[in-house]
Design a protein around this nucleic acid. Structure first.
Length: 347
DNA sequence: CATTCGTGGTT
DNA sequence: TAACCAAGAAT
């Protein structure tokens, strides 16, 4: 039953569904409308890595307003890009975004093939396929979390992820049509995002309800299977929020790699499960706050104790003048710390 | 192949 | 509420 013509018919049915139900998104070209802008496709796809559409919208608008094309972004200062990305998470994306923009600007534009795209920083298997298909109309197959789920269900494959990835890739490739590959890629992802959802899939209104093997077996809601993740440990740390008598804030640029790499933040201790020791950035009358910041990262919970101090005008360190300081330029954890400490420091 | 890397919404 | 999840990439 699953011969080539069956697959191409499925693709056609999905595209027909997409033409009727496609969501309106800022980076999306209307089906059969104008041509896609590779810069906007690339920027949106990087922002959407492990990030919800709702969270991306605002950032996409600000980035494209401030830097309308890849040349403008390539000429931006690192600190400005990091500040604009602050709050969106996974900051290696912002660092790679700038590296990629500069490489692309130097090359005179984005490469058009998946292989060449994937040589660029921050562009992996998924994003290279997405750009090639959506921006350059190449018949590449995207495999994101949505497509993994849809394929596991259509073919009722119970192999747990991530081991199932190669098989699911194969299924997805068989279904990818030669016509309108960009629309098709977005259609499968839309299907996963709106109908073939993780918990309560709306199988009754699914354009692929006919051929779906998991729906026939009643196994759809439990697919895809995933190998269980390790529990998150709790780490502890201390952050020091210092403010000079002229209102300037003591901040530091974090090292360019690792957690929150390249972002602006409050100086502090390392974060560990035990062995916490006070390590103030400079001697002062540091006062402990009652309330601590609780924040959860991908692989651990953090409980961050805060110390605040008013510092003399001649205190050493990197101070940001109050007029230049915007808590929105900080990653969320550091924003939370500021929110708790601000009233204690006359802000 | 396993781990690291954010954050906010949903269940 | 704790767990799960999101248009993943780099190491």
């Amino acid at each position: 039953m699953r011969d080539e013509s069956a697959y191409s018919q499925m693709a056609a049915e999905l595209l027909a569904w997409y033409d009727r139900h496609a969501r309106v998104l800022p980076w999306r070209v209307p089906p059969d409308g104008g041509k896609a802008d590779p810069y906007r496709v690339w920027l949106s796809e990087v922002m959407l890595q492990q990030t919800t559409v709702a969270a991306v919208k605002e950032y996409f608008h600000r980035f494209t307003t401030r830097w309308p094309n890849v040349e403008a972004l390539a000429a931006a200062d690192d600190a400005d890009v990091m500040a604009e990305w602050a709050g969106l998470g996974y900051y290696a994306r912002a660092r790679n975004l700038l590296k990629c923009a500069r490489a692309v600007a130097a090359q005179g534009g984005f490469p058009k093939t998946r292989a060449k795209l994937q040589e660029l920083p921050g562009i992996g298997p998924y994003t290279s396929a997405a750009i090639a298909a959506i921006a350059f109309d190449r018949p590449e197959t995207v495999l994101d979390g949505n497509v993994e789920r849809v394929m596991a269900r259509i073919f009722d494959d119970h192999t747990p992820l991530p081991a199932a990835k190669p098989v699911l890739t194969d299924y997805a490739a068989r279904l990818t049509p030669v016509q309108r590959p960009g629309d098709y890629a977005q259609a499968v992802m839309d299907l996963g995002a709106t109908i073939c959802t993780p918990r309560n899939p709306a199988c009754g209104i699914c354009p692929w309800r006919g051929p779906c093997a998991a729906r026939a077996s009643g196994t759809a809601p439990s697919l895809p299977r995933k190998t269980p993740k390790a529990a998150k440990p709790i780490r502890f740390g201390i952050a020091y929020i210092g403010r000079r008598s002229d209102g300037a804030w003591l901040l530091e640029r974090r090292p360019p790699k690792g957690l929150l790499g390249g972002t602006l933040g409050w100086p502090g201790t390392v974060w560990a499960e035990s062995g916490l020791v006070e390590t103030p950035p400079l001697p002062a009358n540091w006062r402990a706050l009652e309330e601590e910041v609780r924040h959860t990262f991908t692989h651990f919970h953090l409980r961050l104790s805060l110390r605040v101090a008013l510092l003399p005008i001649d205190a050493p360190g990197h101070f940001v003048p109050d007029a230049q300081f915007n808590p929105r330029d900080l990653p969320t954890l550091m924003r939370k710390a500021h929110a708790l400490a601000a009233s204690e420091l006359g802000a």
